[in-house]
Design a protein around this nucleic acid. Structure first.
Length: 975
RNA sequence: GCCGAAGUGGCGUAAUUGGUAAACGCGCUGCGUUCAGGACGCAGUGAGGGUAACCUCGUAAGGGUUCAACUCCCUUCUUCGGCACCA
């Protein structure tokens, strides 16, 4: 028996498995089915990278384990091959995208096969294959027919020099990434998909699926559902001044303003002579006039500020009030929604110190939201909410706001979690036009503590979706660079536009804001008004109050979503053509109607194939390169047979990936996208794993498509994926992301050549927790390789000493037996939880122990091989066959593959320990270790601990106050 | 900016979910085996102090709860991912 030669055995078994088709899924089987899915790769020119291997291996391990557990497993693969990089490459080189795609997929296929993944290669699909995108187009037509696809004007990024629409990614600092020209906004009619019609279901159905909690949260945040009340003019009768709710745009106005103990000498000194002095004083006056005293503060916040950080504690006098007034209008902040939770604890501090606590705008509705799990996860202060009334910053309008309390640098600041009464069109306008105009500078008083001086250093390119948050720095400070000081003159940088609004008197605004505050109807969670609900708790009467408000006509219920409709057009060549035709004469005939003049391509004419052209250069008009191809564009109208033109926009990359998992179940069907029978058998996907970076959009889009198909009666379930997990990225060895300049960093084929596929697979699973990013380090590769070599050597000794060895030489409770069964258990459970790193670590320990042991039963060694098999399929197969056949020639015929053998079971009785070592602590510090029997009583163990020699030594001159025993773990003596 | 995830030895990381911090792997040191190198085996490897038995400190920083905190709570800092035309 020779040395471990990965090259020989890996190729051999890959061929053998393929020949025997052992990984092919059966479309019907008596066994239960398992559909494991990974995100199909975009076949880039650089070939596979380490990240692909990691995620593919993980699902491969799970699929292999399921096969061994007796499931009929579908683990398919395909190519998400439309996309910008390929198109850009084609423009640059003149090589047709089809050719580029072909050679890229060939590379990927070769690389994937070299790693021994158990894909069902008979079901390979490719989104750029007309036989595939015929159905992508077909599904689009169903959307179109149901009125869920429509045209709307949208702004696109336009490079005037390259004459091409740009992806956001291609715009860097407002300039075109390739030529550096300043990017313009251009209006264009775009196809939209009405995903907002599904918003509610996309939100609610998350309850029924098994996604990681942060994935669900991501979906929920994106959809942004909020349930609430829109108030009407009549609400004034409640004593609250409200004049408009609909005029404050989504982002752009934010104010933070803090005054702490304004009469305190330190504060006085700070503002004295500054431009803040006057507005602050008038602000305070106003508050006094209104008898508004103190803000809501939690006990800890106040204690943190006033006991820890200030030498002169303003609270120490007991009667000096704190003033905190904070207004932040952000997100979609108009109107009102049900607030987040409020808590009795909020008021505990106030009670304790007898301080009257109130917000500047007193709470209107406060409730404890016990049933919302997502809120529960959040820290206490973030769940607190008050409602306040606030005045529009420039217009004479008031808003009733849900003021979500949050603590920022020791001060209570607000954040709005709100609904709005803004139509989709308004939202768009806001984003594109009013956004930057209304954007305002955020100012605050010079802060009381130096740690609070921290200028914002960069204006993020996404900031225009939200308020730019710039804090004022003390202009006299020497450690602040001019550059940073200049920043404060800039409110918002957008494209070419710089807006500054420093000349506005912010303090005046804040003062004015307080005008809107009228009165509270709740105190400490108990309603004081209206009379109908007086004395009752908010949490208890919440629904009644809402009904009351609705009944009285003060407001109406409204559910609000942040989600916008999906822009479905791309002005690109390398995508699925949108299968519609524009007919001018039909347009006239149906003028005024939705989608007037847009005629769907008859289903029998699908697919609308991408024409083969020599030139992919974009057009002058901003249309897709397809517009240049007169032959393709000019067609007869399918309806009136008049002159018409094809739509030249193509679909976004998300389109093909929104339904690909459905095609796998019946990939060659040319009558339907998949047969009902196969869909019924295979869907939904049992387990879908993919990148963290895809958990919001791709997931949402494909869930939307699936729900639509479900409504059309075309798929049997309303959700596509039963379970979704995600994996972290692999970073370069310096902890940064692999970039274009660095390339993929790691060439999988090279590593397979040197170390073998099994070693690479093991290493990628071993390098760190699966759901987190880890840095690649080629040095670490050697560890898993040594592990495999150890197993190889082990097989030699095991086979040599056996099978003559009789089973009776083993004690039933031998250490090795115990360890084997513990390891089987650990690996079985770890794989389910995707804790591959610790599973491998456990197998390493087992292999070391087996090597040390005097005898290892072949039978036990085979069990070890079985749990190793999903991780290192080639070497496990080779050794498995040898335990049967003694020697395996390169031409050995595969008889009973390890991968089709039954997953080993562990024996619970063997796992239990009778004797165990526990720690003895004194005051939490470990001082000794003692052996105990697991069935020892608590008293026995305590006795053993207290009479231990070392412990006695430590206890000299001390009394035992208390003894705590944690079963099977430790004894802690409190002295 | 908003949302999400994370921060532990020289490095990748583990920790029975509040119970002996650093398992497993890489690297390094010493010893064994070897003609030699490699490979393999054994022992050691957080920091400081001590001849030693041992002692003190230690999980981004600060504070809190607890007999006991990497783990729970509060604040601050840093890194990574998503943000609607990258895939």
């Amino acid at each position: 028996m020779k040395e471990y030669d990965h090259k020989k055995i890996e190729k051999k078994w890959q061929k053998e498995w393929e020949k025997k088709e052992i990984y092919y899924a059966k479309d019907n089987s008596k066994n239960p089915k398992f559909y494991g899915l990974i995100e199909f790769p975009y076949p880039s020119g650089a070939g596979m990278h380490a990240g692909h291997i990691r995620s593919n291996t993980a699902m491969d391990i799970i699929s292999r384990k399921r096969r061994m557990e007796g499931y009929n497993v579908l683990y398919p693969i395909g190519w998400d091959a439309f996309g910008l990089p390929t198109e850009n490459y084609a423009i640059k080189t003149g090589i047709h995208p089809i050719k580029v795609t072909k050679s890229n997929t060939d590379t990927f296929r070769r690389q994937l096969k070299a790693l021994g993944f158990s894909f069902d290669w008979s079901r390979e699909i490719n989104t750029t294959d007309p036989k595939y995108y015929k159905w992508t187009q077909w599904i689009f037509l169903q959307f179109f027919k149901k009125g869920l696809a429509y045209k709307a004007k949208m702004a696109i990024n336009w490079c005037p020099k390259d004459k091409i629409g740009l992806a956001n990614e291609e715009v860097v600092d407002g300039k075109c990434e390739r030529c550096g020209a300043t990017v313009e906004k251009r209006e264009k009619e775009q196809w939209m998909l009405a995903i907002t019609k599904y918003a509610d279901r996309l939100y609610k159905d998350l309850d029924d699926v098994d996604y990681l909690s942060q994935i669900k949260l991501g979906q929920r945040n994106w959809i942004g559902r909020s349930e609430g009340i829109m108030f009407t003019e009549k609400v004034k009768d409640l004593g609250i001044k409200i004049e408009a709710y609909d005029s404050i745009p989504q982002t752009f106005m934010a104010q933070t303003f803090c005054v702490i103990a304004p009469e305190h000498p330190l504060v006085k000194k700070l503002i004295e002579g500054t431009k803040y002095e006057k507005p602050v004083l008038s602000f305070i006056e106003e508050f006094k006039k209104r008898k508004i005293k103190n803000p809501v503060e939690t006990e800890k916040e106040i204690e943190g500020i006033f006991t820890g950080r200030y030498v002169d504690n303003p609270f120490s006098t007991g009667d000096l009030p704190i003033w905190v007034a904070t207004f932040v209008i952000a997100d979609y902040g108009t109107g009102i929604v049900n607030s987040s939770a409020h808590d009795e604890r909020d008021f505990a501090f106030a009670k304790k110190y007898n301080i009257p606590l109130r917000t500047v705008a007193e709470p209107l509705f406060v409730k404890t939201d016990g049933e919302d799990a997502f809120q529960k996860d959040k820290p206490f202060v973030e769940r607190n909410a008050v409602v306040c009334v606030i005045k529009h910053w420039s217009e004479d309008k008031y808003l009733l706001l849900n003021w979500k309390k949050a603590v920022w640098r020791g001060f209570v600041v607000g954040g709005i979690e709100g609904g709005e009464k803004i139509e989709d069109t308004a939202l768009r306008e806001i984003r594109e036009e009013t956004g930057y105009k209304n954007m305002r500078f955020i100012k605050s008083l010079p802060k009381v503590h130096s740690q609070f001086f921290q200028p914002v250093k960069k204006v993020n390119r996404f900031a225009h979706f939200h308020p730019v948050y710039v804090e004022l720095t003390n202009g006299d400070r020497e450690d602040v660079s001019q550059e940073e000081k200049d920043l404060h003159e800039v409110v918002w940088v957008s494209k070419n536009e710089v807006e500054s609004s420093l000349n506005r008197d912010d303090m005046k605004w804040i003062w004015e804001s307080s005008q809107g505050i009228e009165k509270s109807i709740m105190k400490n969670g108990i309603l004081t008004e209206p009379i109908e609900f007086k004395g009752r708790e908010w949490s208890e009467v919440r629904e009644d109050v809402i009904n009351y408000i609705v009944k009285k006509g003060f407001g109406y219920r409204k559910v609000n979503f942040k989600l916008r409709d999906w822009v479905f057009s791309r002005q690109r060549y390398w995508g699925e053509p949108i299968p519609v035709i524009h007919c001018p004469s039909c347009a006239k005939a149906s003028a005024g109607k939705e989608n007037a003049g847009w005629i769907p391509v008859p289903e029998k004419d699908l697919p609308v194939e991408l024409p083969k052209v020599k030139n992919y250069q974009p057009t002058d008009s901003g249309e897709s390169p397809l517009a240049n191809i007169a032959k393709w564009v000019n067609v007869k109208c399918p309806k009136c047979k008049g002159k018409a033109k094809r739509e030249t926009d193509t679909m976004p990359n998300w389109a093909g990936s929104s339904w690909y998992y459905l095609r796998y179940v019946d990939p060659k069907n040319n009558k339907e996208f998949a047969s009902k029978k196969n869909l019924k058998y295979w869907t939904p996907v049992d387990w879908y794993n993919g990148g963290n970076e895809h958990t919001t959009l791709h997931l949402l889009y494909s869930r939307f498509w699936h729900k639509f198909l479900f409504d059309e009666g075309l798929v049997p379930t309303s959700e596509p994926y039963k379970k979704r997990t995600s994996h972290g990225m692999i970073l370069a060895d310096d902890g940064t992301k692999f970039s274009k300049s660095k390339g993929n960093g790691v060439d999988p084929e090279e590593i397979v050549k040197i170390y073998g596929a099994d070693s690479l697979r093991l290493y990628e699973m071993f390098m760190g927790p699966f759901d987190q990013s880890v840095s690649w380090s080629s040095d670490g590769m050697i560890g898993p390789r040594r592990f495999i070599e150890k197993v190889w050597r082990l097989s030699r000794t095991v086979l040599d000493m056996n099978p003559k060895m009789s089973k009776t030489v083993f004690d039933s409770d031998s250490k090795l037996q115990k360890l084997l069964h513990k390891t089987i258990k650990k690996v079985s459970e770890d794989v389910e939880e995707m804790r591959f790193n610790t599973a491998i670590s456990a197998m390493m320990i087992l292999s070391t122990e087996m090597e040390k042991a005097e005898y290892v039963l072949v039978e036990d060694f085979r069990k070890f091989l079985q749990i190793l098999a999903p991780f290192a399929p080639h070497v496990a197969e080779e050794l498995w066959q040898r335990t049967v056949l003694k020697e395996v020639s390169p031409r050995t015929v595969l008889k009973n593959s390890i991968h089709l053998s039954a997953w080993p079971k562990w024996d619970e009785n063997l796992i239990k320990d009778e004797e165990v070592k526990i720690a003895v602590q004194i005051n939490g510090k470990v001082r000794a270790e003692i052996m105990i029997q697991t069935d020892d009583s608590e008293d026995t163990v305590k006795q053993k601990a207290l009479t231990n020699e070392i412990i006695l030594k430590h206890m000299v001159g001390r009394d035992v106050k208390k003894v705590i025993y944690v079963k099977g773990r430790l004894v802690n003596i409190v002295a």
